[in-house]
């Protein structure tokens, strides 16, 4: 009898210990139920522009973005011209609106020689997410109209320029993103018969986050030498380096570039650019502000 009681006693101790061990604390028990973090869209860059070219960053539905870009004179003009700051070379004012989370439309106007009015759309085809989708793919395209006065009357069609860009980006980690942008530009009117109407290019862009709010960006636009060698100058391919400073709804971009035009149809046309490594570069900035309507 004593033996039996002892046995029961032992069992009860063993069982209590066992059941206590099973009885994990509530938080551990919950963690086993917790699902993995839900999928989020990842945006590779701070804004809709890397430096001059568009990025895969898509405006959300009913988001209105106002952008103003300034490009100053040549930094190589030296202190007399305050390194170009005395002149305003080009001002580009843009409004873009998100029609849906996948499609935005925009209008912009540049003060360049041709007084280019730009219209365009951007369509997000694939968006990178935290785990399922590893890159973003977008299409950007538009029709630009040169609104300047010509000495002699020209057919309207000659004022038009077309742009088609495919944007492919990936955010590799929380600091580094890259984008490849194959583009095609058609200019209905060019300076001479030697100049090509059709230009193919591939832009490479990289972005590195210095802090959670600032990124260092670089962009190189390689124009394919599909035209006259004498006219083609590899040194004039667009090269831009910039910094993005993001403050909630605003993004400030400061950059230097050898391009004098701020839209793809302008900077892909090499003859508009300077040779970066001759020091003929311009300082510029963009301010972007988003409004939710």
């Amino acid at each position: 009898m004593k033996y039996r009681l002892l046995l029961i006693g032992m069992f009860s101790i063993v069982l209590t210990v066992a059941s206590n061990a099973q009885e994990k604390n509530l938080l551990d028990e919950l963690s086993t139920h917790a699902k993995a973090s839900s999928e989020q869209y990842v945006s590779a860059f701070k804004s809709t522009r890397l430096v001059l070219g568009p990025t895969t960053v898509q405006l959300s539905a009913k988001e209105l973005q106002f952008r103003v870009s300034h490009l100053f004179g040549l930094m190589s003009d030296g202190i007399q011209e305050l390194f170009g700051l005395d002149q305003i070379y080009n001002v580009d004012i843009a409004l873009d609106y998100g029609l849906t989370n996948w499609l935005s439309a925009g209008i912009a106007r540049s003060s360049d020689y041709d007084k280019t009015l730009q219209t365009g759309v951007q369509l997000a085809i694939l968006k990178q997410t935290t785990s399922a989708q590893w890159f973003s793919l977008s299409y950007a395209g538009g029709v630009n109209i040169r609104t300047r006065k010509y000495e002699i009357e020209r057919p309207f069609i000659e004022r038009l320029e077309y742009e088609h860009l495919v944007l492919l980006s990936r955010k590799f980690n929380h600091q580094f993103s890259a984008q490849v942008t194959p583009g095609w530009v058609n200019l209905n009117r060019v300076p001479t018969t030697a100049h090509p109407h059709s230009l193919w290019y591939t832009a490479l862009g990289v972005s590195y986050a210095l802090t959670p709010s600032t990124t260092l960006n670089g962009e190189y636009t390689y124009v394919w030498p599909t035209f006259n060698d004498g006219l083609y100058d590899g040194g004039k391919n667009g090269l831009s380096v910039g910094v993005d400073i993001e403050t909630g709804g605003h993004v400030f971009q400061l950059f230097v570039t050898n391009a004098t035009r701020l839209q793809p149809s302008g900077f892909a046309a090499q003859w508009n650019n300077n040779v970066f490594f001759d020091g003929d570069i311009h300082f510029g900035f963009s301010i972007m502000r988003s409004f939710s309507l």
Binding site: L27, E29, S37, S60, E246, S290, S292
Partner: peptide
């Protein structure tokens, strides 16, 4: 005990949610 998934917070502005 509670477990809250941070990424599941929904904001009115998607830019805010991202930031």
């Amino acid at each position: 005990a509670f477990v809250v998934t941070i990424a599941d917070f929904q904001f009115e502005k998607s830019l805010m949610q991202e930031h």
